[in-house]
């Protein structure tokens, strides 16, 4: 290699940073992360790390004990979350995060089970599980990270890809109408539905806290930038440019009708807390029915931690 081809930082323009003993103070997230797996695999300007921080911050604000929380995720970029958080966690097969989480919640009702997974995993491959967990009002908190694409498998079209967006399997633009996830969740019976972007990090933290404290099927959709596949193929710049787009084009409308909150390709969209009502959970319905039919012969299990603590 010749001398000229070696790119060196300009010594005048970049003075050496002052010597600092940064490693002596650990990052506050380190006690919540499996540090042997950090740095994570997510691309520069991906929003997933922000979602992990918001999830942990929201979890810290609840009165849930750390040992009583489990994180389940499926396959995909977001599926890696289960491997990075230092909580009881399980990384399931593609689309099967919700059935596994349902089983976990049934076998140990004290456990608060959070599902953190992507759009393709939860409403694409696992769409059937999603609608039935919402119908049953199973005691789950679902953090659905929507990057509009199947990112880890190479950027294929997903059920959330907006029309005309370019993906690897729709090189002439997507033409299928996408899911409106808050509308789908509300129609299926979710008791808490919110949507934020990874830029609305404080509101997202508050929504995750509410969702974790709520008995029943609570959904928080997080719109995040995918820089490497979605933004690059559609020539939208980097993840930072997408955050700027969210900043300029997202409108907060708490309580908006979920039928109005569909997302079109690079058009203004609505974020906020859309649904927050109460409905008997699967456990409550099961116990009521069993008590009504079996009477004293029915011995209920100890209830879910969230209904006891709140």
């Amino acid at each position: 290699m010749s001398e000229a081809s070696v790119v060196k930082a300009d010594p005048v323009a970049s003075p050496a940073p002052p010597p600092r003993d940064e490693e002596s103070i650990p990052h506050p997230m380190e006690e919540w992360l499996r540090m042997d797996r950090i740095p994570h695999i997510w691309c520069p300007t991906c929003g997933l790390g922000t979602v992990v921080t918001a999830f942990i911050e929201g979890l810290k604000q609840t009165d849930l004990e750390r040992d009583n929380v489990a994180v389940v995720s499926g396959i995909g970029c977001t599926g890696r979350v289960a491997g990075y958080v230092k909580l009881d966690s399980y990384h399931t097969t593609h689309g099967r995060a919700i059935p596994f989480a349902t089983g976990l919640a049934l076998s140990n009702p004290k456990l608060k089970v959070a599902v953190v997974s992507g759009d393709g995993d939860l409403v694409g491959i696992g769409g059937n599980h999603f609608i039935h967990a919402a119908r049953r009002n199973m005691d789950l908190t679902v953090i659905l990270v929507n990057n509009f694409i199947y990112a880890m498998t190479g950027g294929q079209v997903a059920p959330t890809t907006p029309e005309t967006a370019n993906t690897t399997t729709t090189p002439y633009g997507a033409f299928e109408p996408p899911f409106n996830i808050p509308h789908l969740a509300e129609a299926c019976g979710a008791v808490y539905v919110a949507r934020w972007t990874s830029l609305h990090v404080r509101r997202l933290t508050e929504s995750i806290r509410k969702a974790l404290s709520k008995p029943g099927f609570a959904l928080v959709e997080v719109v995040t930038p995918c820089s490497t596949l979605y933004a690059r193929r559609n020539r939208l710049g980097s993840g930072l440019d997408l955050l700027k787009f969210y900043h300029d084009n997202s409108t907060i409308q708490n309580g908006a009708r979920t039928s109005d909150v569909g997302i079109d390709f690079q058009k203004p969209f609505i974020v906020g807390e859309f649904v927050d009502h109460d409905r008997p959970t699967w456990f409550q319905l099961m116990e009521a029915r069993m008590s009504a039919t079996l009477g004293d012969k029915f011995i209920p299990k100890e209830g879910p931690s969230c209904t006891n603590s709140k």
């Binding site: 994570h40 790390g49 921080t53 990874s198």
Partner: peptide
């Protein structure tokens, strides 16, 4: 909160 790589606090 925004840092995706847990590298600033």
């Amino acid at each position: 909160l925004l840092c995706p790589d847990f590298s600033i606090f």
